[in-house]
C-alpha cells in the first residue's frame, strides 16, 4: 500500500506525537500572531478604510457645497449685471426726459420772449401813434393858428386837418 510506503520512507514510524505537537504549536502561534501582529495591523487597516471612506464622503460633500456656492455666485453676478443694465437704461431714459424737458422749456421761453417782443413792438407802435396824434393835434392847433391868421373858413380848416391826418397815416 502506498500509504505505508510513504510513511516508511520517512522514518519507519507513525509518530502521532508530532501531530499533537504541531497542533499545539500552531494554536499558540495563531494566538500570539493575532495578539502582536495580525490584530493591530488589521485593526489599523480597517481604521484606514473607514478614514478613506469618510474622507471621500467629505470630499464629495465639499465639492457639492463648492458647486452650490459657484452657482450662487454666478447667479449674483448675472443679477448684478442685469441691475447695472437696468441702472444704465434708467439713467439714459432720465437724461432723455430731462433733455426733452429742457428743450421744451427753452422753446417755451423763446416763444414767450418772442410774444412779449411782439406785444412790446405793438405797444410801442400804438404809443407812437398816440403820440403822433397828440402832436398832430398840436400841429393842427398851430396850423389853425396859422390859418386863422390867414382867416380861413371852418370847412377849409377841416379839409386841412383831414388832409394832414391822411398824410400822417400814409
Amino acid at each position: 500500500m502506498t500509504f505505508q510506503i510513504l510513511f516508511a520512507a520517512s522514518a519507519g514510524h507513525i509518530y502521532l506525537g508530532n501531530t499533537i505537537w504541531y497542533l499545539i504549536v500552531f494554536a499558540i502561534l495563531l494566538i500570539l500572531v493575532k495578539h502582536y501582529a495580525w490584530g493591530p495591523v488589521s485593526d489599523m487597516m480597517e481604521k484606514r478604510r473607514q478614514k478613506v471612506i469618510n474622507d471621500l464622503d467629505s470630499a464629495a460633500d465639499n465639492r457639492k457645497k463648492a458647486e452650490v456656492l459657484a452657482n450662487e455666485r454666478e447667479a449674483a453676478l448675472k443679477n448684478s449685471r442685469q441691475e447695472a443694465t437696468q441702472i444704465l437704461t434708467d439713467a439714459k431714459a432720465n437724461a432723455e426726459k430731462t433733455s426733452t424737458q429742457i428743450v421744451a422749456e427753452a422753446n417755451n421761453n423763446a416763444a414767450s420772449i418772442h410774444e412779449k417782443a411782439k406785444a412790446d413792438a405793438a405797444q410801442a407802435k400804438a404809443d407812437a401813434l398816440d403820440e403822433a396824434r397828440a402832436q398832430v393835434a398840436d400841429i393842427s392847433v398851430t396850423i389853425a393858428e396859422k390859418v386863422i391868421a390867414k382867416n380861413l373858413s371852418a370847412d377849409d380848416q377841416k379839409d386841412l386837418v383831414d388832409q394832414f391826418i391822411k398824410g400822417l397815416n400814409k
Binding site: A11, I14, Y15, L16, G17, N18, W21
Partner: peptide, 10 residues
C-alpha cells in the same frame, strides 16, 4: 506518554 515523537519535525 505512549506517543512517538520525531525530533526532526518538532
Amino acid at each position: 506518554l505512549g506517543l512517538k515523537f520525531d525530533l526532526t519535525g518538532i
